[in-house]
Every structure is written in structure tokens, then in C-alpha cells.
Amino acid sequence: ATNIVGKVKWYNSTKNAGFIEQDNGGKDVFVHKSAVDAAGLHSLEEGQDVIFDLEEKQGKAYAVNLRIK
């Protein structure tokens, strides 16, 4: 899926990971530091509006192509 709108639920820069809550009510999506880095960002803030694509690896959904809304 592409161009999904959501809000950062939480992001821990020590653990280099967090979750994004989908505005469409879907399951929360894992976001890794690699996606944050690829977006040219240093970190994510709780409640921040984002747009992202979903990629599945080994049955788990990940946020990729992250951008700030």
C-alpha cells in the first residue's frame, strides 16, 4: 500500500524504532531508523503527521518512503 496517512504513536531514538498509527484505523505500523534516515530526518516526534508506504517482510508490516505531511 502507498501514501498511507498516519501519526507517530511513539518513536524511541535510543532503540531506533517506533510505531505509526494509521489514520484509516489499520494496525499500527513499525518504523525503523533506516526509514527515518532515508527521509533525511533525525528523529520523529509523537503526534507528528506522516505519509508512508507499507512494505511487508517476513509477514510484518514496515513503514518505508516516509515523509512529513
Rank of each mutant, 00 (worst) to 15 (best):
K9T: 03
F30E: 06
D49H: 15
T14H: 13
V5Y: 13
A38D: 08
K15S: 09
S13Y: 10
T14Y: 14
A63K: 01
A39C: 04
K69I: 15
S34N: 10
V8P: 01
Q22L: 13
L41C: 06
T14D: 11
K27Q: 11
A17R: 11
A38C: 09
L41T: 03
N16D: 07
N16H: 13
I20A: 01
N3S: 08
A61K: 14
K9N: 02
H42Q: 12
E46T: 15
D53N: 05
S43E: 10
R67L: 04
D49T: 15
H32P: 07
F30W: 07
N3Q: 07
L41N: 02
G18V: 03
F19W: 14
Y11S: 03
E56D: 08
E46C: 12
E55V: 15
I68Q: 06
K69D: 11
N24I: 08
F30Y: 11
W10R: 04
S43V: 11
G6I: 03
N65W: 02
I4P: 01
K27S: 10
T2C: 13
Y62D: 02
D37I: 15
W10M: 05
F19R: 08
G59S: 06
K15I: 13
D37M: 14
I20Q: 01
A17M: 15
V5F: 13
V8T: 02
G25V: 05
E45K: 14
K7I: 07
V64L: 04
V64G: 03
A1M: 13
A61S: 13
V8M: 03
S34P: 04
L66G: 00
D37C: 14
D37S: 12
A38W: 06
V31T: 02
A63F: 01
K60P: 02
A63S: 02
H42R: 12
T2G: 06
K60N: 07
T14R: 14
K33S: 09
F30M: 07
A39M: 07
I20D: 00
A38I: 08
S43W: 12
S13N: 11
G40M: 07
G59R: 04
K57W: 12
R67T: 05
V8Y: 03
K9A: 03
E45A: 12
L41W: 11
E55D: 07
Q58I: 07
E46Y: 12
V29Q: 01
V8I: 10
F30P: 06
A63Q: 01
Q22F: 11
E55A: 11
Y11P: 01
S34E: 08
K15D: 07
A1S: 11
D28Y: 11
E46S: 15
G18Q: 01
S43I: 11
N16P: 03
V50I: 13
K57D: 08
V5S: 15
Q58W: 14
F19D: 01
N12I: 07
D28C: 11
H42C: 14
K7W: 08
A39S: 11
G47H: 05
L54G: 00
V50C: 05
K7F: 06
A17D: 03
D28H: 09
I20R: 00
I4N: 06
D49Y: 15
A1N: 12
V64D: 02
A38H: 08
N3G: 11
G26S: 09
Q22D: 05
V31W: 02
E21D: 05
S43T: 14
S34R: 10
D37F: 14
A35D: 04
L54N: 01
N65A: 04
G26H: 09
K15N: 08
S34K: 10
F30T: 03
E46W: 12
V31R: 00
N3V: 04
Q22T: 13
Q48V: 10
N24E: 08
V50Q: 00
H32Y: 07
N65H: 08
N16Q: 13
G26V: 07
A1Y: 13
N12S: 13
V29E: 00
T14G: 11
K9E: 00
R67P: 02
V8A: 01
G26W: 07
V36Q: 01
D49S: 14
V8N: 01
G26Q: 10
G6E: 01
L54I: 15
E46I: 15
I68S: 06
K9I: 06
F52K: 00
K57H: 11
A1V: 12
D37G: 07
V29A: 04
N3R: 07
L54S: 03
R67W: 04
D37V: 15
N24S: 10
L66H: 01
A63D: 02
K33D: 02
V64M: 05
G18E: 00
D49I: 15
D28E: 07
Y62Q: 09
N12P: 02
A17I: 15
G26A: 10
I4Y: 07
A63C: 04
A1I: 12
N24Q: 09
S13P: 14
D37A: 12
K15P: 02
E56A: 08
Q58V: 08
D49R: 15
I4M: 11
K60I: 10
N16I: 03
V31C: 02
T2Y: 14
V50A: 02
K60D: 05
L44V: 03
F19T: 06
Q22A: 09
A35I: 07
N3D: 11
K57T: 10
R67D: 03
K27H: 10
E56N: 10
V64R: 05
A63H: 01
G47A: 05
A35L: 03
G25I: 06
K27M: 10
V50N: 00
K33N: 05
K15F: 13
A39G: 05
D23G: 14
F52Q: 00
E55Q: 11
V64T: 10
E56W: 15
N12Y: 07
N65M: 03
N24V: 08
V5C: 14
L66E: 01
D49E: 15
G47E: 03
L54A: 03
D23H: 14
S13G: 10
H32L: 07
E56K: 11
K60W: 11
I20N: 00
L54R: 06
I51S: 04
G6S: 01
S43C: 11
V29N: 00
I68K: 06
N12G: 03
F30N: 03
L66T: 01
E46N: 12
L44E: 00
I4F: 08
D28A: 09
A38S: 08
V64K: 07
F52M: 02
E46F: 11
E46Q: 15
T2Q: 12
N3K: 05
V5P: 13
K60R: 14
S43R: 12
V5T: 15
K27P: 15
L44S: 01
F30G: 03
L44D: 01
K9P: 00
E45P: 08
K7P: 01
G18K: 01
V64N: 03
D23E: 14
W10F: 09
K69W: 12
A38L: 09
L54T: 05
L41H: 05
H32A: 08
A38R: 10
K27L: 09
V64I: 11
A39E: 02
H32C: 11
G26F: 08
G26P: 05
G40L: 05
V36E: 00
F30Q: 05
R67N: 04
G18A: 03
A1F: 12
F19N: 02
G25Y: 07
G6K: 00
D23Q: 15
E55N: 08
G59V: 01
V8L: 04
V5I: 12
I4R: 12
A63G: 03
E21L: 12
G47D: 04
F52D: 00
N16T: 07
N65L: 02
G40Q: 07
L41Q: 04
Q22N: 07
A63Y: 01
E56M: 14
E55W: 14
G6A: 03
V8D: 01
K33V: 08
D49N: 12
A38K: 11
K7M: 05
R67C: 05
N12F: 07
S43H: 12
L41R: 05
E45V: 14
K57M: 10
A61E: 11
N16A: 12
A39I: 07
W10V: 05
Q48D: 09
I68H: 05
E45T: 13
R67S: 05
N24D: 10
L44R: 00
F30R: 05
S13V: 13
D28Q: 10
E21A: 15
Y11Q: 02
L66A: 01
S13Q: 12
A35K: 03
A17C: 15
D53G: 02
G6M: 02
V31N: 00
A17E: 10
Q58L: 12
E46H: 13
D53Y: 02
I20H: 00
Y62E: 05
Y11K: 02
K7S: 06
N3M: 06
N24T: 09
N3F: 06
I51N: 02
A63N: 01
F19E: 07
I20M: 03
G25Q: 07
Q58A: 13
G47C: 07
H32E: 08
E46M: 14
G25T: 07
V29R: 02
I4A: 06
N12W: 08
A35H: 05
K15M: 14
G18S: 01
H32F: 08
G6D: 00
V29P: 01
K69P: 14
Q22W: 12
F30D: 02
K57A: 10
A61R: 14
E56T: 13
L66Q: 00
Q48Y: 06
V36G: 01
A39F: 03
L54E: 02
G25R: 07
D53P: 00
Q22K: 08
V31D: 00
N3A: 08
A17G: 15
R67I: 07
R67A: 04
T2A: 09
K9L: 06
H32R: 07
H42T: 13
G47M: 04
I20K: 00
G18M: 05
R67E: 04
K15G: 07
A38G: 06
Q22M: 13
V64W: 07
E46P: 15
F52L: 02
E45S: 12
G25N: 09
V31A: 02
A38F: 07
